[in-house]
């Protein structure tokens, strides 16, 4: 009887954990498309409890090397203060190569407002894509 208790408890604990994990992770994928730009860019927003994880994936489906620049700007404002993240990187992608070049992670509270801005420049350093996402509680 004593030996059986931990097994029952561990099963319940496992079930509970699984439900929590399924319940609290929110994943949003935003494809970033630009004209005459063959690279496949996706912006991932992953929300786990109060943590917001923002990252990009870049894939080169062509047989040529691609050269471009990406920037990611995240601004969060709320009672705890202001967070500013500005990341940029020149990316050279080999054929069929896929990378995750940058990651931003912020703690977001219920009263916080945040914006995420992605910009892409081509090889000639011309801005070819600009996307901005705002949180629901926009002020």
């Amino acid at each position: 009887m004593v030996g059986g208790q931990p097994q029952v408890l561990s099963i319940k604990f496992g079930e509970k954990m699984k439900a929590q994990i399924l319940g609290i992770i929110l994943l949003m994928v935003l494809p970033l498309k630009a004209e005459n730009f063959p690279a496949e860019l996706n912006l991932y927003l992953e929300r786990e409890n109060s943590l917001l994880k923002v990252y990009l994936t870049c894939y080169n489906p062509t047989l040529e090397t691609l050269d471009f620049k990406v920037s990611l700007k995240i601004i969060k404002k709320g009672p705890s203060g202001t967070s500013n993240v500005l990341q940029s990187k020149r990316i050279i992608l080999s054929p069929k190569e896929k990378i995750k070049p940058m990651l931003g992670l912020l703690k977001i509270g219920p009263e916080d407002f945040y914006t995420i801005e992605v910009k892409v420049w081509n090889k000639e350093r011309r801005l070819i894509l600009e996307k901005t996402i705002c949180s629901e509680n926009e002020r």
Partner: peptide
């Protein structure tokens, strides 16, 4: 990585290159 506990704080990160940025601001 910036961790700020309290209110009315400000964090700024600039990264040029493939990097990881983490800002945790806790507390109102």
């Amino acid at each position: 990585i910036i961790v700020q506990i309290g209110y009315n704080n400000e964090a700024f990160q600039f990264q040029s290159g493939g990097s990881t940025s983490i800002i945790i601001q806790q507390g109102n």
